[in-house]
Amino acid sequence: MSSNHTLKMIKKLFTPFAFTSKEVYAWSSAVWLMIFLLVWYNAPVLIPSPSEMVNRFTEFVIDPDFWFDVLSSLMVTVFGMFISIVTSCIIAFLTTLPAFKPLKTLPVLRFMSMAGFIFMFTLLFHSAYYVKIALLMLGIVPFFILTLTSSIAEIPQEEFDFWTTLGYSPWKQLYYIVVFGRLEVVFKTIKANFAIAWIMIGYIETYSMADGGIGVLLFKANGKTQIDKVLALQLFVLILGALSDYCLGQLRLGLFPHIALTEKK
């Protein structure tokens, strides 16, 4: 590679919106990884080294009790997500009816703190599991409703005109355009908000520790200043979250092949 070519490539790397090859992308990723590891190895003594973190990570993975906590967190997250998306869809679809339009203001609830509801939910549900589900719903339903109602508001007029001119009633239009037609948006919403739910569950589990969970492990490790354990748990949370995100993305593409043609990568 000539020095002229290398200079050109470096210049390109610092030019806004410039197109680069996959090879250049791989090289720049490798450089960033090296910078990250360099900073980590030279970090203050308090922060454990990558090898210490990997050792703790391996200990967790081979411990059967750890998987009980993972399962507990996953069950709450998946069930909480399911019930939240069903509730949000019903509310969002209902906002197409003038009588239910005021429900569009529900997303304002996302500014409320969950902490204030713990005692109330404990009195209401008497079960740590349902308290966690209720807190998760309170945390993510407003975000779901906001995304879904925004996608409904963005439906172009010609989409309604198409179905109207083919003799479809407003109720059938609701089904074809909003319920069936925006199913992929529902999946997109799940995918986009799964990370929020996954992060939220860590906090929620510390409010109600009875059933264990990754959040409880993190809370305890933090309390004992076992930073190597905290980082190992964070790595696990990151891997599981990224894996779920990938699977949801692939599922969405499989179920709605048209989005692969219309969405920019």
């Binding site: 989409e159 005109d161 198409f162 003799g167 074809y176 048209h258």
Partner: peptide, 30 residues
């Protein structure tokens, strides 16, 4: 009344997630 006249819009809107055959069948349904 709405539905009495057909419209072919400038951008030829068609439902994005359906095959052409399915779209035509939906158009013929009513």
């Amino acid at each position: 009344n709405p539905g009495d006249m057909g419209i072919v819009p400038q951008n030829y809107y068609l439902p994005a997630s359906m095959s052409i055959q399915k779209i035509l069948a939906i158009a013929a349904y009513n």
